[in-house]
């Protein structure tokens, strides 16, 4: 049962991701990307990472992608000519990507898995991935990095504002 769900979700995520890349109109790309994010958050759920799943939908799909859509709306609609001046890249990309895919899948499925060691026990599932265990970590052990991320966000906001202002 779990496997079937995973397969459905996996195929969906791959499909939506491919759609982001091949879709000619940016708006559709963005919509597909939102779909991709939702599918990914469902995959997180199968991994018992409920909090992250929620965060994924809220922040990515909710905030970041809305920002993307805003920007896309501001732009005139364009239809792009994929390769243009760099036609030589067309012939290189496909084989290189295939080699890369092969290597990645090989390394991920053979190499690192061995070091991952034991299969998970289903004993301490209750707390795992829940907001309690994550909160404990975030506000105790990772308090300083947590505060620093807020600083990063602040810097990003100021940077964005400055970029727009300095033009005018």
């Amino acid at each position: 049962m779990g496997l079937i769900i995973f397969l459905i979700l996996g195929i969906l995520s791959v499909f939506t991701a491919i759609a982001v890349v091949v879709e000619k109109r940016p708006v559709y790309s963005a919509l597909y990307f939102i779909a991709n994010l939702v599918v990914l958050s469902l995959i997180y759920l199968t991994l018992h990472s409920e909090f992250l799943a929620v965060v994924q939908v809220l922040i990515y799909a909710g905030a970041v992608m809305v920002l993307f859509l805003f920007v896309i709306m501001m732009m005139p609609p364009v239809v792009e000519n994929r390769f243009g001046k760099m036609s030589f890249q067309k012939f290189l990309i496909m084989p290189l990507l295939l080699i890369f895919l092969f290597e990645l899948v090989y390394v991920l499925s053979c190499g690192l898995y061995a070091s991952a060691g034991k299969s998970p026990s289903s004993l301490s599932f209750e707390n795992f991935g829940g907001i309690v265990s994550l909160g404990q970590l975030l506000f105790k052990r990772y308090l300083v990095p947590f505060e620093i991320t807020s600083l990063i966000l602040l810097v990003a906001i100021i940077g964005a504002v400055y970029l727009r202002r300095s033009e005018q």
Partner: peptide
């Protein structure tokens, strides 16, 4: 690609 290839030889 080169880095991953190197990693593959190490596995």
């Amino acid at each position: 690609i080169l880095l991953l290839g190197f990693l593959m030889t190490k596995i």
